[in-house]
Design a protein around this nucleic acid. Structure first.
Lengths: 109, 109
DNA sequence: TGAATATATGAGCAAGTGTTCATATATTGC
DNA sequence: GCAATATATGAACACTTGCTCATATATTCA
């Protein structure tokens, strides 16, 4: 029905990751695709912070921040530790910053 | 009302990008946050492809692929050239691959 | 134990997103 | 010009998402 492109596709197909990996990649970037979460990650890059410090910084409710921190934690992008009543969050690995840095390069080129 | 975190926040505030940059970053990653678009970018990494080749590869309608290619083009992630009736798409810069590669590192670590 | 503080979480809703369907535009060859 | 092929696009709809509000949990201190 359409023109032929067997040659191009056979090569491409061989190099594609599995559907599950592609799904995981999309899910990961979805977490980066929200300004609030980007702000949180940027803030945590500079310094470990508690929930109420983040909500003060972003001028958003504690509930909204907690929900977003859960999303970030589920994606293994942040980790937390308790100290009394306070819970401090930090970035959980260096990929976070290198991913954001690459994105930053793109938008500022 | 809450405990004090002036010290932590003053440092963080000084290092944060502008709201506009943070918004642009979120918008960029939003484009990466869909499996169909990830698949398209992966396919184009291997080879320049026409629209119908991509829709055959992903087993999706031509319309769905065209819509997604427009999203990718608006984000300056792909570029196209016409050759007769056919329009070939390719990645428009090397950031695309390095961003995906960093994400891939994270999910496969 | 009870009050205060810090955080987490479930339900609900408005806004956004990806696909489909129908149709429009562009190019080629007759 | 007309038919065929390749691609683009607008409207509609189901599904997802981020916030709010109310409330639950956890910890400290009196």
């Amino acid at each position: 029905m359409t023109h032929n492109h067997e040659d191009a596709l056979s090569h491409v197909k061989a190099e594609m990751p599995t559907d599950e990996q592609l799904q995981d990649l999309g899910d990961l970037f979805k977490v980066f695709g929200d300004t609030t979460r980007i702000k949180i990650m940027y803030a945590l890059y500079e310094e470990e912070l508690c929930v109420c410090a983040i909500s003060e910084l972003l001028d958003m409710t504690q509930s909204a921040i907690s929900h977003q921190l859960k999303t970030l934690k589920d994606a293994n992008l942040v980790a937390s530790r308790r100290e009394g009543k306070t819970i401090y969050y930090r970035l959980s690995d260096e990929h976070v910053i290198s991913i954001i840095a690459k994105g930053y390069e793109h938008i500022t080129e």
